[in-house]
Amino acid sequence: MLKQKMRAIAFPFLNKITNLILKIWSRFSPSPLSPNPQHIFILRNNDLGDLLIITPLFAALKQYNPTVNITVGVGNWASSILHENPHIDHILPINAPWFNKGIPAPQQTLWHRLRYLSQSPEITALRQLKPDLGIDIFGSSWGAMLLLQAKISRRWGVAGYGGGEGAMEFCIPYHPDMQVGRSALRFAEALGATALPPCRPQLFLTAAEQEEGQTLWKGLGINKIKIVIGPGFDGDARYWGLANYQAIIAHFSQRQDLALVLVGGEGDRLQGSCFNPFPITNLMGQLSLRQTFALLAGADLVLCNSSMLMHAAAAFNVETLVLLGSAFRNPGQHDRQWGYQGNYRSLGGEQATVGEAIAQVESLLKGLKAP
């Protein structure tokens, strides 16, 4: 308790000091008047779902100004999300060691962050591109320092979240009740855009990828309702727990009209063995990210945690039931910030039960028919 109080006192103080330093630093990188930037760099070195939910911003910027050059800086773990996206001109590796799960926590220390800012060839590559506007979607002091190190003269960020305001020409205010994708679209509005795409992730599959997904489903469940399940792993309070997913799968696995498929990353492969007793196809750790997208594109229903899978399912308008772990004490808050309109339901928090989840799935299945 004492440590929490000390942090509550120290954080605002440190934030003020950091912003003062950034403001002084930014004085050496003046912002010229350029109302219509021709090259925009967008920093999103965070996790997979974080990138997916803000993809409508790229379309909004291109629709407003088709000639603008858009470079997106992402971690290597997320770059395939942007493949085939017609609204992006360049994907730049930015493996910045902060605010992501793509880099192990022991490699995100203060020393690692400062070394990245001072020595990374990725920042050198960004500087050589000479974008005239840089946008830190996350909104942090570290993102602001990256834009300053890259010598980007115009810098935009988020006020009231992770800092960095002192270095910015413009900030959108952080709003915890605004959907994250809609919040990102405010950057396009600030440039003058009025025609905005829906707040739904955008994924673009090649014809070959679509065919691969269709082929996978043909081998798994012809004339069946196709259900993708992403249980994740135990030990994270944001996730619903493997035992709960086992109970749901035990209930539905005997139905002959359903094709049940488990998916997950390489780290989930070992935990997938707990589902072996059930007649279910286990592809955990066996599909690439793009192959997972292709499988989702052909699915009828997705059951998952608040994770990448939730956002990817939204991209294809697949009916989705999101099962929230105990960390989400206010599911409504989660949905306002991370959820979607249409083909989306959530259940969870501390009060969720397996019986309630089964009832929700039964309700959704009534609206679905096998081909």
Rank of each mutant, 00 (worst) to 15 (best):
D257E: 13
R27A: 14
D177K: 09
I54K: 00
P277G: 08
M308P: 04
S363H: 13
L323C: 12
A208M: 08
L22T: 03
G285R: 00
W77N: 06
D268C: 00
T320Q: 02
R155E: 11
V261P: 05
S31H: 03
D132A: 08
N330Y: 05
G230N: 15
A313G: 05
N317Y: 02
M6H: 11
L129Y: 11
S307F: 08
L22D: 06
S120H: 06
Y116T: 10
G348P: 09
D47N: 14
D136G: 12
L365E: 02
I17E: 04
T281P: 03
A150Q: 06
L283S: 02
D47V: 10
G348M: 05
K23P: 03
E84Y: 15
I103A: 07
F13P: 08
P176F: 03
I53A: 06
S306W: 01
R155K: 15
A159E: 05
A312G: 03
I225P: 08
E169N: 11
Q63N: 14
E212F: 07
Y174E: 05
H90V: 10
R44C: 08
N343C: 14
I172P: 00
Q246G: 08
V228Q: 09
R329I: 14
N45G: 00
S346I: 09
I172C: 01
Q4M: 11
D300S: 01
I152C: 00
M168L: 14
P12C: 13
Q256M: 06
E165V: 14
A314N: 13
A59Y: 02
F328A: 09
E84L: 14
V74D: 10
F316L: 06
S29R: 13
H311G: 08
W77H: 15
L295N: 13
K16T: 15
L22K: 03
V322W: 04
G192V: 02
Q254L: 10
G272L: 04
L20Q: 11
I24H: 06
M6S: 14
E122L: 09
L114D: 02
Y174W: 01
V318N: 07
Q214R: 04
Q107Y: 12
K218P: 01
I227Y: 02
W77I: 12
A193G: 03
V261M: 05
I9Y: 15
N15F: 06
I91E: 07
G298V: 01
I135K: 03
A370P: 05
C274W: 02
N317K: 01
M308R: 02
